[in-house]
Every structure is written in C-alpha cells, then in structure tokens.
Amino acid sequence: MTTQLASGAPGSPGLANPAEHGGGPGTGSRTTRALGVAALLGVAVFVPLGLVLSPEDVMQNDLVRMFYIHVPVAILAFVSCLVTGAGSFMYLWRRQLWWDTAACSAAQLGAVYTALTLVTGSLWGRPAWGTYWDWDARLTSTAMLMLLLLGYLALRKAPGTADSQAKRSAIVGLLLVPNVMIVRQSVDWWRSLHQPATINLLGNTRIGGTMLFCFVVGLAVMSLIWLWLLIHRFRVSWLEHQIDRLDLAGALLARRAEGQP
C-alpha cells in the first residue's frame, strides 16, 4: 500500500515543490552528513589496509582478507535482528509508532546484511573448503534467518491499518531472535550426529597485532555505514507513514467538502 502510494510520486501533479516546503532535499541532516563523511573516510582507510597492507596469515594465507569483511557484515546482520527484536518489544510495550518504524528499518537492513553474509561466506567457503555451501549449523541457520526476515518483511508489506500492521509485525519481530536460536540449536544437534564439530573457517588461527587492528578498523567502518543506512532508512519509513497520514487527512477533507454544497 505504502509503496504504491509513494512510487507514483515523481512529477505527479498537485505536489508542492521542495522550495515551497523548505528543508533539506531528503532524509539527510547534519548528523548523517557527518556520519557519511566519516564512513567514506573510513572506507578509504579500510580498503587498502585490509586488501593490501595487512600481512598474510600463516594458516589462512590471503584468505584472512575475507575475515575482515565477512565477520563485520555477519555481526551487523545479527545486530540488525536484535534491534528489530528490541524495537518490536518496545512497540508492544509503549505502543509508539517510532519503535515500530525502527524495527522495520532494522529488519530491512538485516535482510541486506544477512544476504551479504551468505554471499561472502560462500565466497570464502569455496577456496577454504572447496565448496560454496555446507550443511553446517551456522550456515543453515543463517539461511533460515534470511527466510524469517523475508517473511517478516512480506508481512509488513501486507495491507492493513497502520496500527494492526504494527501489532502483527511486532509479534513476528519479537519471535525472530528466539526462532533463530531454536533453529540454530536444532540444526546444531542434527548435524553434530554426522560430524563431530562445526567447520571453523579460521582453524586455529591466532588473531593478533596487525590483523586484530585491521579487524577492529573494519568493524568500526562497517558499523558507521550501517548506522548511516539505518538512519536514512528509518527516515524513509517515517516519511511513508507521514504520507499515508496526510493522504488520509486530505481524502477526508475532500470527502467532507463534497458533502457540503
């Protein structure tokens, strides 16, 4: 519903131009601009540091460069899910749309980051274990997390009043993290019947010195990007809500005007 309303926006008549409304052109603010600049500078440091300057690992050779990108992405995917769960919980408790919007934005980012986790994980697995996919507990539960997030987002897209939609979504969002944990546990028991331990990509690598530094820089930079995306995404969802509200108010006014001769 929301998306359809909004996608008709460009050039549609009757809409005020930006100059009339004033304000920045979109979802940016001083905070996000500062964040964005910091993130871009960080990327400029992180990419050469991770790809060229960091030394090769004794066990992993140059595959350690996968670690710098894959692990922060995976951590942020999980953080997104935690934020979704927390936002859902707070919505059910406080019933403020703000929390629902936060949960929704974080779930969207979560889906993107989980997909990236799966892709980079496969690209790491291919040279490291010789296969893109393995039915290991961690991989399988990440894939299930992806599907749970897609289900949550599909539920969000389903039409309904804002309030009932938020309530449904909050319950599914709240169950997201427990679901992943139950799935993870059951897959873990299932697979451990066949193979004694889960495959560990890093083996018995010891992380220290330059590698640790690279990893920390990477985590910081990726977190900045994540935060920037989250704020922008949150504001887009907020705008969608406002537009729904304004459209509804406008429609009511028009209806009333029709009624009065």
């Binding site: 409304h21 996968m66 894959h70 993107v112 995306l229 922008h232 705008l239």
Partner: peptide, 30 residues
C-alpha cells in the same frame, strides 16, 4: 574470491544507500 566479496559488499551497500536516499528525496517532496 576476495575481490568479489569485497566489491559485492561495498557495491550492494552503496546501491542500497543510493536507493534509500533517492527514495527519501522523492518522498520528502510530499
């Protein structure tokens, strides 16, 4: 493999960010 995963991560995030910002601008007009 390394270059592919790095470029996919930064590429996807850049595209997603761009799409979000553009959509935000479009919506903000209203």
């Amino acid at each position: 493999y390394i270059l592919a995963s790095w470029s996919i991560v930064f590429g996807v995030l850049a595209l997603y960010g761009l799409a979000t910002v553009l959509r935000g601008r479009q919506l903000a007009r209203r």
